[in-house]
Write a protein that binds this DNA or RNA. Structure first.
Lengths: 154, 154
DNA sequence: GCATAATAGTTATGCGCATAACTAATCTGT
DNA sequence: ACAGATTAGTTATGCGCATAACTATTATGC
């Protein structure tokens, strides 16, 4: 691959990151959320209570990031942290009622953002997109377990 | 679009951002660069000397970000800033010889990263990808000038 | 010609994310 | 049963990026 193509790709990924995140920030701001926090709320809404290391794994970010995110969401009253009975090192994190309500609002925003994002693309491309993006992600994922491709493309 | 699909897409974009950036960080670290700085070097290598506001525009980030990036790259000896003769508000930024050499190294890394990123995808998809990503970016770009789509897809 | 607007850049501050270094608890091997 | 490794989490620190508020310069309208 020559530099022109490589740069077109890398730059496109970088810019998409910046813009998608910025757009998410704009949409989430009225809810009092910063981008990244919504992922934690959605994960809890999806799977129920979890300990922080599970969240770290699910969100794809490091434990210190989870520490800070949970602290801020807890301060906002959206989540609750209580010690795990079976492991005194761990904290169980769960949504409060307020957090559940907020997660529902986030879900609606999330649909709007996704629709806005793929506007103008053929439905076929839209359907393939998550799988393609996950393939790209897996290709550069330096933390992935060594189990091979796993073919989770759509 | 239902939430499942929307979340699959939004999450995929978020994770790709994290991973691609992390991978770039790993590759750039031996050169003493942090991700984001390479974009500035490549832009200068591409277009020659520029003032900061042009860089801000080209990189898609805000002027304060350019201020900090240029300061650090200048401290590293990779770029030089001198006052613009025709406008005493502006600074002209250009690569030093050291910066040009570094930019060449970055170009090689950039090719390797791009190839790694698209590994396993059909060539056809790879060819379409930059255009698709730019469409997505344009769709959520809140700073774009109001000139319509512009159809720069490949 | 001069007040006002627009533009180039900086500083201050805050967030998400990372790594490094640390504590506390649990698990493992002998 | 106990030393050492592993795991859960935190604190400290640094970077990129953002917005807000500011200075200095240049352009504009009357």
């Amino acid at each position: 691959m020559d530099f022109e193509q490589a740069d077109a790709l890398n730059q496109a990924i970088r810019l998409l990151s910046l813009r998608h995140r910025a757009r998410a920030a704009t949409l989430l701001a009225p809810l009092g959320l910063h981008p990244g926090q919504e992922a934690l709320l959605l994960e809890l809404a999806r799977t129920g209570p979890a300990i922080q290391s599970q969240l770290s794994e699910a969100l794809g970010c490091e434990p210190p990031s989870v520490t800070l995110m949970t602290r801020k969401l807890e301060a906002g009253g959206y989540i609750r942290r209580e010690p795990a009975p079976s492991d005194r090192r761990a904290s169980i994190v769960e949504l409060t009622d307020s957090g559940k309500a907020l997660a529902d609002q986030v879900k609606r925003l999330w649909c709007a953002l996704a629709e806005e994002t793929v506007a103008g693309l053929p439905a076929e491309t839209v359907a393939e997109l998550p799988g393609i993006l996950r393939t790209l992600t897996g290709n550069v994922d330096s933390r992935r377990s060594r189990r091979p491709p796993e073919d989770d493309a759509v």
